[in-house]
Write a protein that binds this DNA or RNA. Structure first.
Lengths: 341, 341
DNA sequence: TTGTAGGCGTTATCAT
DNA sequence: ATGATAACGCCTACAA
């Protein structure tokens, strides 16, 4: 059986209060007692029970995370940042996957609340109304990663999706591209996707171009879907000179469809991605992308939760409804080139 | 403030014992009381405090996971399996990253023990003696994923690495390859790597071939390192006709080095991988690989822990020191072909 | 069927 | 400096 603070007290001939004091380094304990206690702790291999500690302290140093799935390196990158920062701040992380189902998201949200976690970081591809509702009702602080919608009343950490899309569109236009396809993620009312679309539109407009509806598609965050979209454009002989995919795995899907059909990237078609997951650098041709500081985003979310917990005497949620924007960058690699004349 | 069982009792005019009974569905409660209690629970939006529950029940439905990092899809695949199975069995998952440092592994191992988790699943690239020691000393059940060494006294779930290496080597030999390189992971005494090496050796031997030392390299699980190894072979004009990499990301590293230096895969050199992470299918040429059932492996590890907890009345660890072997398969894709004449 | 009370392992507030 | 002792929120004999 695991030993308790009481065992230590008995063995060292002091009270449990004293033992507790030496464990927590609080107040003053005589050198003699401290030594005896420390000795007993060693001998019994005593480890304080965190469960009991959390109960009495009325707080928890666990952060709950909800993520669609672990296979996606996009989330992997953010999770690394979350984990690292948590660890640094003495917090730890409880992880749940939703599979993208709001039913699971809600279940996990409730579970986290029952466990009295310090806060919850939510990642999702699509924002379902039920989930938004649940998040708004929750008593536990929630941070949403890189996604938002008008009804959502919780802070968000994100990049400036408008500018990012604007910049990469501009980049392609300056390379001489005029027929540019946009492979978007989902067609839900997701602020992030809307902003990207606006940025795309603005860049085109500033060069006297307008959006070609037949080249704006929804890839649902999936490589296969994106592959199919590209294959269809090829079949319909409506091949653009450049493709902007709002996630790297969709960019890869588009590339594969092109390559498998005899096109060359970037000689025939330029393809650019969003996010800059590891795959973007490993794929050949390596992908020109908008780089998101995934680790930093994860770390920032953790810091926000920790801050809320510190100021919990005040009832205010410091970041309420606010968005923290981290800076992105454009990384030019092999998958983009001047447009063919 | 969050409401407690006592609030519910007061509001519904019964004792906390009765409330507890309806919450847990145990023993019998009069329909009248049950209704009143349920009502009060709704009104107060009461959620039982899991921390308190865990303390009094002396058990925890949390499984601790230690993983080197989240960016690697290999671990991502296993984690998906772990998460899914845990969720199905009513457990949840606490995740820590080690960054491959034994110091962190030990810290997390201790933390999990203090939190009284049901069990711990450990993933690591290299087995350090300190970590092995710590695992052996732990009172909490530990399962190691796809890695082992002679001193380690905990169950393992894995594939048959000997057979896997044997089969893929055979596959290449039958395609006419005679000059085959092996890019291994680390050079530690890891049972898994040793078995792979034996399988490789055996297949060669059965065809009257022997190992060419100059073609056996250590890629340290890293794409860049593998890239370098391949680049070096090219520089030394010691290019094999086929490369077996014991992880997919190393296979990609080798492919990239070849492609970047004007070689064609698989026309000039065949490259095969191990694990079959998502990248293997997305990369072009898509990778011929040994497929590991990552999800199933994760799920199996979870089941082992849950089983241990069920039989905890008996002091026996059902799987003590045993290894559970799951079946792999050889998936032929684009990166391998007949050897050039 | 229901309520009382003891205990899970800590922390923290009192006295002493 | 130290030791009782009351919480923390819940479960569960044991009584009633």
């Amino acid at each position: 059986m695991k030993s308790t603070i009481k065992d230590v007290a008995d063995r060292s001939g002091v009270s449990i209060a004293t033992v507790s004091r030496v464990i927590n380094g609080a107040s003053v304990v005589s050198e003699k007692s401290r030594k005896k206690v420390l000795e007993a702790i060693k001998e019994l291999d005593f480890k304080p029970n965190q469960v009991a500690r959390n109960l009495v302290m009325q707080k928890n140093t666990t952060i709950g995370i909800i993520v669609p799935g672990m296979g996606n390196q996009y989330y992997g990158g953010i999770l690394n940042g979350i984990e690292e920062e948590s660890s640094k701040l003495g917090y730890d992380v409880m992880l749940c996957t939703s599979g993208g189902e709001s039913q699971n998201e809600i279940r996990h949200l409730e579970m986290f609340e029952e466990r009295h976690v310090a806060g919850i970081i939510v990642m999702a591809q699509r924002l379902k109304p039920e989930t938004v509702q649940k998040i708004n009702d929750l008593k536990t602080p929630v941070i949403m990663m890189n996604r938002s919608t008008s009804g959502l009343k919780c802070p968000t950490v994100s990049i400036d999706n408008f500018r990012a899309a604007y910049e990469i569109t501009n980049y392609l236009i300056e390379k001489g591209h005029r027929k540019i396809a946009l492979f978007r993620n989902s067609m839900d009312i997701d602020a992030c996707g809307v902003e990207q679309y606006s940025g795309f539109e603005r860049a085109l407009a500033e060069h006297g171009l307008s959006i070609d509806r037949s080249l704006v598609k929804y890839g649902e965050f999936r490589t296969e879907k994106s592959y199919e979209l590209m294959a269809e454009l090829i079949r319909k002989k409506n091949v653009p000179t450049a493709v902007i995919a709002t996630s790297d795995i969709m960019a890869v899907g588009a590339c594969n469809a092109l390559v498998d059909n005899g096109y060359k990237v970037p000689e025939d078609v330029s393809v650019v991605g969003f996010n800059d997951i590891q795959l973007a650098g490993l794929y050949r041709p390596s992908l020109t992308v908008i780089h998101q500081p995934l680790k930093a985003m994860g770390a920032e979310a953790v810091r926000m939760i920790v801050n809320v917990n510190k100021n919990e005497n005040e009832r205010t949620m410091p970041y309420d409804g606010r968005t923290v924007i981290l800076s992105h960058s454009l990384i030019e690699r092999q998958s983009s080139a001047e447009a063919k004349k």
